[in-house]
């Protein structure tokens, strides 16, 4: 817990890492200054892209004592204003799940290579990033905790599958390798409360460690202070739950 008589410093900058297929991609990195050791976290950005909100979120985790790394999942689609890049990605139906997992695994390996990490690293995502966070927690070895904020299309009907998203993430639930925190809005349509319930049922069926929270009066994206779905009480409570969950599972 930060006190007003404590020193706080932060390094925050873009960097590069080896992503899927060993390809170099860029990423945004933020960590507290000092020898640490610090727990780590990989942030998986959302539909609107590798944008200012995710830079702010990366620095927020650093402020709370984490070495935080957010890879640019849209690196290969080109460069420009984050909105223009994300719009182009939206136009071609998103990015392949396997490639995202390769980039996330690369981010995890990059954090592990740093000399000031404790070795306990979580994965966090919102929206499509939440879906990818759950998918990564199932399919990438080594995460100590996972946070899925309103990730839609974890539960998917067969007709929703695409070449880029060929398997519903819920199908991998048996392989979930760490505790999972899920934050959802009761008014959300993707994921709907019914889809969240089906996700939860799969977690129970496989005896997984998880905690889900459904916020009444909140919809999709209730953390986003710059969007109309921002819900102040839910966002404040949600962030508290995020940091409490991380403290429990990344300690030591």
């Amino acid at each position: 817990m930060y006190r007003t008589d404590m020193y706080e410093g932060m390094l925050a900058e873009t960097t590069t890492l080896a992503g899927a297929g060993g390809e170099t991609i860029n990423a945004y990195f933020a960590r507290p200054l000092g020898p640490g050791p610090f727990p780590g976290i990989v942030l998986i950005h959302h539909l609107p892209g590798w944008d200012e909100w995710y830079r702010e979120a990366t620095r927020k985790f650093a402020h709370h004592g984490y070495a935080a790394l957010c890879p640019n999942l849209y690196f290969r689609e080109g460069h420009g204003a984050p909105e223009d890049v994300a719009a182009a990605v939206r136009g071609v139906g998103g990015v392949p799940d396997d490639r995202v997992l390769g980039d996330v695994a690369g981010a995890l390996a990059h954090l592990r290579s740093l000399p000031y990490l404790t070795g306990r690293i979580a994965v966090f995502g919102t929206c499509s990033g939440g879906r990818h966070a759950f998918l990564a927690a199932c399919r990438v070895q080594g995460f100590a905790a996972a946070i899925d904020c309103w990730g839609g299309r974890v539960v998917m009907a067969s007709e929703e599958l695409t070449p880029k998203q060929p398997v519903a993430p819920v199908a991998y639930t048996a392989e979930l390798g760490c505790p999972l925190l899920g934050l959802f809005g009761a008014d959300d349509r993707s994921p709907s409360p019914e889809q969240v319930a089906r996700h939860e049922e799969a977690l129970k069926q496989h005896g997984k460690t998880y905690e889900f929270h459904m916020y009444p009066g909140a919809g999709h994206g209730f953390f986003y202070h710059d969007r109309p779905n921002y819900r102040q009480e839910a966002a404040v409570d949600g962030w508290r739950k995020v940091f409490a969950f991380l403290a429990r599972h990344l300690a030591g």
């Binding site: 539909l47 609107p48 689609e77 080109g78 460069h79 420009g80 204003a81 909105e83 223009d84 890049v85 994300a86 719009a87 182009a88 939206r90 136009g91 929206c127 919809g219 999709h220 994206g221 969007r227 109309p228 779905n229």
Partner: peptide, 24 residues
């Protein structure tokens, strides 16, 4: 899908472009 600017959760989004000229 989710818009970037209009204050709606979902919107009909039109993106006119030319891939050869880049994302800008």
């Amino acid at each position: 899908d989710h818009p970037f600017d209009v204050p709606l959760e979902y919107a009909l989004n039109l993106d006119f472009g030319n891939e050869a000229l880049g994302l800008d």
